[in-house]
């Protein structure tokens, strides 16, 4: 099992992050097709594409805690958030001319995430997946942490900041370029 990876891609980061948090050793091979089409997991007789399917597969591994699972709704929602964010981020970062006010692109999505996290918080829950972080939270983290690449002002999203702070404190948390370490 190995991951076709592109270090600077947000969707690939979600998979590396998930593997690290779940305690799965996942060898990677740099593959520039992952820049376009996202991560792919090479298995003995199959190749899995996309962060969601790969993360779901990691949760089925024998040594991984079942708690990393998330409800289907939460996973679909977070996967859509990551997909649309990833498109925006690539549009901005690969543009030949600077995009004017890139934050404006991401703010509707950030607002939706903030609402969901704020509601969870009122229920006393820190995670989209419930009491334990899960695949949905792992896919959400790159979106909010890398929103800085689109110059999203985080003072406007306190529940997002709260989520990021808790997430960075998880054992096994890893960064990627653009995501500052926790202190």
């Amino acid at each position: 099992m190995r991951l076709r990876d592109w270090a600077l891609d947000d969707r690939c980061y979600a998979v590396r992050l998930g593997a690290s948090l779940m305690g799965v050793k996942l060898p990677t091979v740099t593959d520039d097709s992952a820049l376009e089409s996202g991560p792919a997991l090479e298995l003995v007789d199959d190749v899995l594409h996309g962060s969601l399917d790969i993360l779901k597969r990691l949760v089925t591994l024998p040594d991984v805690l079942q708690e990393w699972n998330s409800g289907t709704d939460a996973m679909t929602w977070a996967a859509n958030a990551l997909d649309s964010f990833s498109i925006m981020r690539r549009t901005v970062m690969l543009a030949s001319l600077p995009v004017e006010n890139p934050a404006q692109l991401a703010m509707p999505l950030m607002g939706e995430i903030e609402d969901r996290l704020a509601e969870n918080r009122l229920d006393g829950r820190c995670w989209v997946s419930g009491d334990h972080p899960g695949v949905a939270d792992i896919m959400l983290f790159p979106v909010v942490a890398l929103s800085q690449d689109l110059e999203v002002p985080l003072d406007l999203y306190p529940a997002v900041r709260n989520f990021m702070r808790h997430f960075k404190a998880l054992p096994g948390f890893i960064t990627m370029p653009g995501v500052p370490e926790c202190h």
Partner: peptide, 17 residues
């Protein structure tokens, strides 16, 4: 500028006025 609960002990946070 912010809620008390959004700046827990031992942390820093941005605000704008």
């Amino acid at each position: 500028v912010a809620l008390t609960m959004d700046v827990p002990a031992g942390t820093a946070a941005p605000a704008r006025l």
